[in-house]
């Protein structure tokens, strides 16, 4: 029986690239020294900017080497889900721009977008990550819905991590308008939006998860894989780690298998790495906030 190769490959991480046998061997033999001189647990430099999109409630742009992600958060009033009347909700939407790679043209990026979307949804589901009851306005009738729109502008490997960091930064800056429940007009409550545009509240994003991708190469695993490394690896895990070092979701990627022992050690490493990433990101976000209004750098540089 023959199986189509695309079924064997499993969920694709991103656009496939071609590599020769020798290049793969070179990457495989790298003993804690990767092609760009990093050790296995090093990230490439990350560049962050928030508040670029003026008409969004919160936004961020994050670049990790050549991966470029723009995230905008928009808050809107809606009625809560009937099974969770006391909570607001988050809705994710990922768009893979055809500018990133020609393969995303048309519906090409849809699978990848759905995968990222689903996994984000899953990792935010745990009650420890974000307090959704903060988003409730009027129990059972009105709540805030946060629409998180993610635009992938460029792919340079390790999309999951890049997207999660950008989403966290955007949520950190999201301003939710203050709202008051005014007089009850019969059964219908009247909502009164504060007139001061600066009268807003912010979410507690301390525990919002960061995703950490670990790819297995040979007998070892590494964080922040480049596209070349992704191409060499047959399996890996994406782990969502909250600020309190808790793992909120795990997903295996690639078609290869993982030994139970290595899986346990990968999860352990991921939670440690995730905690560090979370801490540094929060520190930087606070730094940017306290620096106050500076000239935005944006895309023109």
């Amino acid at each position: 029986m023959s199986i189509a190769p695309q079924l064997l490959r499993g969920p694709s991480l991103m656009a496939e690239i071609l590599l020769s046998e020798a290049e793969k061997a070179f990457i495989h033999h790298g003993d804690d020294l990767r092609c760009d001189g990093r050790t296995r647990l090093d990230y490439r430099p990350i560049i962050l900017e928030t508040g670029l999109v003026s008409n969004a409630s919160g936004s961020s742009r994050l670049r990790l080497a050549n991966s470029d992600v723009l995230v905008g958060v928009k808050v809107e009033l809606a009625s809560p889900l009937s099974e969770k009347p006391l909570e607001g909700r988050l809705e994710f939407f990922v768009d893979c721009s055809a500018n990133a790679t020609p393969e995303f043209e048309g519906r090409g990026g849809e699978d990848l977008a759905n995968e990222i979307c689903r996994f984000l949804q899953m990792s935010y589901m745990s009650g420890d990550t974000i307090n959704l009851s903060e988003l409730s306005v009027l129990a059972g009738q009105q709540c805030w819905v946060l629409y998180v729109d993610i635009l992938i502008l460029e792919c340079g490997g390790n999309l999951y991590d890049t997207v999660s960091l950008a989403v966290k930064s955007a949520l950190y800056t999201t301003q939710i308008p203050s709202i008051k429940v005014a007089t009850m007009d019969g059964d219908q409550p009247e909502l009164e939006l504060s007139e001061d545009p600066y009268d807003t509240k912010r979410l507690n994003t301390q525990n919002v998860p960061c995703l950490v991708t670990l790819m297995k190469i040979g007998n070892h695993y590494l964080v922040d894989p480049t596209p070349e490394e992704e191409c060499c690896s047959s399996s890996g895990v994406v782990v969502a780690v909250s600020g309190s070092k808790k793992i909120t979701a795990v997903r295996k990627i690639g078609s290869g298998s993982l030994h139970p022992e290595s899986l346990v050690s990968m999860l352990k490493t991921a939670s440690e790495v995730g905690a560090v990433v979370n801490k540094i990101l929060m520190k930087k976000l606070l730094e940017e906030e306290t620096a106050g209004k500076t000239q935005k750098v944006g895309f023109m540089r």
Binding site: Y43, L48, R61, L165, V276, E287, A291, T294, V297
Partner: peptide, 13 residues
């Protein structure tokens, strides 16, 4: 291990 910078901190190349 991880290096995060703000866009305003990055020098112009």
């Amino acid at each position: 291990m991880v290096d995060i910078r703000l866009a305003s901190e990055v020098p112009l190349f």
